[in-house]
């Protein structure tokens, strides 16, 4: 299919004797929101790390729009068009909100050391364009990042806003694919619903998203498709409702007995 954005092709990653990800294959199509679920230790984060360049798969391949990205460094993967957020917030706390987003554009800017030393007109033009773009990105979170907050340090934001800022930073890389690692972790139900709405808005704006999530409301509400993993293997894939009711998935979460009582 021509609209395949990401193609993970029987990827395997072994740590010593442990197969953290075992012969995993899935595809993500343009404009889709796909959720990756599974109990702790099921290999979700390792999958993210394989895609984003932290690890190189032992075997198998990862293709972005048909081009292999396996074994590239994180910055190279980023340059090819995959941005990510982190399970544990990783913001640049002592930098301003605006700077955080601008760092996200680092790989998209060209100014070299001479330009930067002398602030050449070329560099200034580029900088202006970047600031404009960053404003537009921050404006996608209505009411959360008013102009007055742009120059405040990221550490001064509330927790939920910091999570939003991390998404904004990832958007700054103009990604073809956005990886969100538990975007609503630690949020209250109200905030979760708002972030869910924003993820839907991102989809409307044409973004393709792969996210790890535990919050079933968000998974059900936002995703087009769900992939369930356990012990590094794909258990089930399909519409959210079907996957949630899949006996194998229920068993992975609750164990044998739990599955019996649930059914």
């Amino acid at each position: 299919m021509s609209d395949v954005v990401l193609d993970v092709h029987s990827a395997t990653k072994t740590f010593g004797g442990l197969k953290a990800v075992n012969d995993l294959s899935f595809q993500i199509h343009a404009g889709e929101i796909v959720s990756l679920i599974g109990p702790n230790g099921s290999g979700k984060t390792t999958t993210f790390n394989l895609i984003s360049g932290v690890y190189e798969p032992d075997s198998g391949d990862v293709l972005l729009r048909g081009e292999s990205i396996a074994g590239l460094r994180p910055d190279q993967v980023y340059a090819r068009g995959i941005s990510r957020t982190f399970q544990m917030l990783r913001l640049f706390s002592n930098m301003s909100v605006m700077e955080n987003v601008l760092v996200g554009m680092h790989g998209r800017t060209q100014a070299n050391i001479i330009d930067c030393m002398f602030h050449t007109p070329r560099m200034r033009r580029e900088e202006e364009v970047c600031v404009e773009k960053a404003r537009a990105i921050l404006a996608q979170f209505p009411g959360r990042f008013p102009e007055s907050r742009h120059d405040q340090p990221a550490s001064s934001l509330s927790y939920a806003n910091r999570r939003r800022l991390e998404i904004a930073r990832a958007l700054a890389g103009e990604p073809k694919l956005l990886l969100l690692d538990e975007p609503v972790a630690g949020m209250n139900p109200m905030e979760s619903m708002e972030v869910m709405q924003q993820i839907r808005d991102l989809k409307e704006a044409g973004h393709t998203i792969l996210m790890i999530e535990h919050d079933m409301k968000v998974i059900m509400g936002a995703s087009d498709r769900v992939i369930a993993m356990d012990h590094g293997v794909k258990l089930a894939e399909g519409a959210p409702k079907d996957v949630a009711n899949d006996p194998a998935v229920v068993e992975a979460y609750l164990g044998r007995r739990g599955a019996d009582t649930a059914s």
């Binding site: 910055d75 941005s83 680092h106």
Partner: peptide
């Protein structure tokens, strides 16, 4: 780590 994933080498 975050900066590496934001395109900084």
């Amino acid at each position: 780590i975050a900066s590496h994933h934001s395109g900084v080498r």
